[in-house]
């Protein structure tokens, strides 16, 4: 849209009635807004404030001693378990999320076929959603119910150790030894994929079949692009799930630091830990956004390119016009000056 068009377009302001109606929207979201203020933004600001202090609980209330970045240096230099766990956690998430998402997609595709006992299989695969709570998982893992005894993990780890850095390899080994847990974490994801798959237009597959496309091709060119937003959604869901899952030792560490009676730890120290943790999670989420976010397809790209070219052309044209106008003015002026001079001379 160039300037001329913009000028010609009349901007329609919503009428008074529409504006009054829109104001009702605020009434509806007011409870949530208040909640966000009280339970999200204020605590957020406070914990940001806390992390620069050493906080001690006295009978008279909390006593703040400013320590600057002391909490952070302490976490990084004196109590190294937290940073170590953080690194482990990052690797773990990066390894586990793709596995969970791909696995969920596989199961969803299989459940989406025309099979018998579909309801039964769905029942089985959705069952973990209601069971996966921290303590139950801890119990099952500690009693060895989470591993398949006949699976030989050692050889797998050894094989990966040769080709990958050791931290990554150990995470993969960990993943294999807790395979059932990984599978159990994919209940909701399967459901989301399943309902997305059912919404793919069957006419697309029919058209592809007429054009001679096989099942494999259909999957890559129809199914996957259609459900791509769901892949991102599931990846983010999995990251968040893993982060707030009680199997995760980091959150227990933060809680323990919060209530440890020692002099240097406490609310401020725990806040600093929590902020670091939040930063790491946001970075991981961002990573998946960048990897899986909706890239524009070829058509969109072509349109944008054409628009840009048209704009450039217009700009060049305008500059040419301006230049010629300027020249015309200059010539005119020169002629006038000449005339004036002639007139003066004449005089």
């Amino acid at each position: 849209m160039d300037k001329q068009e913009k000028k010609n377009m009349i901007k329609v302001r919503p009428g008074r009635l529409a504006r009054r109606e829109a104001r009702m929207g605020y009434v509806f979201i007011t409870p949530w807004l208040l909640g966000v203020l009280a339970f999200l933004l204020m605590p957020l600001a406070e914990s940001f404030y806390y992390m620069w202090f050493n906080i001690r609980i006295t009978p008279l209330g909390m006593k703040f001693t400013p320590v600057g970045t002391g909490n952070f240096t302490q976490i990084w230099l004196e109590n190294p378990e937290f940073p170590q766990q953080l690194v482990t956690y990052v690797w773990q998430t990066i390894v586990e999320v793709p596995v969970i998402v791909v696995f969920a997609l596989l199961i969803a595709i299989m459940l989406n076929q025309k099979i018998k006992f579909r309801a039964f299989f769905r029942l089985v695969f959705f069952l973990p959603v209601i069971i996966v709570s921290g303590p139950v998982m801890n119990m099952l893992v500690s009693e060895g119910a989470a591993t398949i005894p006949s699976m030989n993990v050692q050889s797998v780890v050894a094989a990966f150790d040769r080709i990958l850095p050791s931290s990554l390899a150990s995470e993969i080994g960990e993943m294999f030894s807790n395979m059932i847990m990984i599978l159990w974490y994919s209940g909701v994801q399967i459901l989301i994929f399943l309902s997305a798959l059912q919404k793919v237009d069957p006419a697309l597959y029919e058209a592809a079949k007429i054009d001679g496309g096989g099942g494999w091709e259909c999957f890559w060119k129809i199914t996957l692009p259609t459900i791509k937003p769901m892949v991102l959604l599931n990846a983010v869901y999995t990251v968040i799930f893993l982060s707030s899952n009680e199997q995760n030792e980091l959150i227990t560490m933060i809680k323990n630091a919060m209530f440890s009676g020692t002099k240097e730890k406490g609310y401020g120290y725990a806040s600093a830990m929590a902020w670091m943790y939040a930063l790491v999670i946001s970075l991981i989420t961002l990573l998946f956004f960048l990897l899986l976010g909706s890239r524009k397809d070829a058509y969109d790209r072509a349109v944008i390119k054409a628009k840009r070219a048209a704009k450039k052309e217009k700009r060049i044209q305008r500059s040419i016009e301006r230049r010629s106008a300027r020249r015309a003015r200059a010539i005119k002026r020169r002629i006038e000056q000449k005339k004036y001079r002639e007139y003066a001379n004449h005089d």
């Binding site: 979201i29 949530w32 807004l33 966000v36 009280a38 339970f39 999200l40 204020m42 605590p43 957020l44 406070e46 914990s47 806390y50 909390m62 983010v236 968040i240 982060s243 707030s244 959150i251 933060i254 809680k255 919060m258 609310y267 725990a270 806040s271 830990m273 929590a274 902020w275 943790y277 939040a278 999670i281 946001s282 989420t285």
Partner: peptide
């Protein structure tokens, strides 16, 4: 507001946990 909504989901609970506890 929608962005805040999604942000409040992504933000780990641990960040707001301590002041909320005090509150």
């Amino acid at each position: 507001f929608m962005v805040i909504l999604i942000f409040s989901y992504i933000l780990p609970r641990q960040v707001t946990m301590i002041p909320t506890y005090v509150l």
